[in-house]
Amino acid sequence: MVTHPIPADSVGIGLRGDHCEYVAVNKPSVDWFEIHSENYFGQGGAPHDWLRQIRQDYNLSFHGVGLSLGSTDDLNVKHLERLKELIHIYEPGLVSEHLSWSSIDGIYLHDLLPLPFTKETIVHLASRIERVQDMLGRTILVENASTYLEFSHSEMSEWEFINEITRLSGCQLLLDINNVYVNACNHQFDPIEFFSKISPSVVGEIHLAGHTVKNLPEGTIRIDTHDQRVCDDVWHLYEAVANRFHAAPTLIEWDKELPEFSVLMDEANIARSYRQEMQSAAA
């Protein structure tokens, strides 16, 4: 098993079920893979057979979508225990979740739902993250989510909210550049200012993904669909911040309308070329 940590200058690819056999058999030249932890909550079968094989050759990142960190329900200990078992088996280099909620009164809506940026939310989320980190015995990363609405009783900006949470809980930030861009367009703020307020020392991973532009009579809403290539504006933002967040590895995410694996390799190579440009400019 590959045991060294995921290197700062590396570019990983989000691995979905349909590509597992291809990856296990062909061992493409990819730095590391990120999986959705819940896809491996089953006890056995092909998903685990492939992942065990893939883990021999690649480092992994476990990205959770179902822990519902921001929920005011009790923390789902059963969910967390299964995650802990999987971490024990596969020894991933990174473990992450989202700054959102998805369940209430025991009902799981299975979406990354928006939170009001209030002191109440900060205290609640930071203590939940601390509990998760205590139970898992490791630092986790939390990802900034795409949102389609803002709450009028929010007391601060998204970046102030994020900074308070990482400061109080000691967790790291999984900075999704596409999500910042989507929110900047949906809620009209300057993404560059957002990035300038995020301390590079807390960013442990960067996400890049494609989104959908939905034009309605009232205006445009951008929706985080992960079903296409990273758009030009997001690549430009990535280029602009690559230097600032050089210590964080990058991941290409693609979840729906999954293309041939070579398309993902191509996206990863584009990300790598921006990183190399930055390095040669620095030299």
Binding site: P116, Y148, L149, E150, F151, S152, H153, H187, Q188, L216, E218, G219, I221
Partner: peptide, 14 residues
């Protein structure tokens, strides 16, 4: 009533 509208109705955003 808690959703900022900004060109869209709260209902649409939800």
């Amino acid at each position: 009533t808690l959703v900022e509208q900004r060109g869209f109705q709260a209902k649409q955003r939800i």
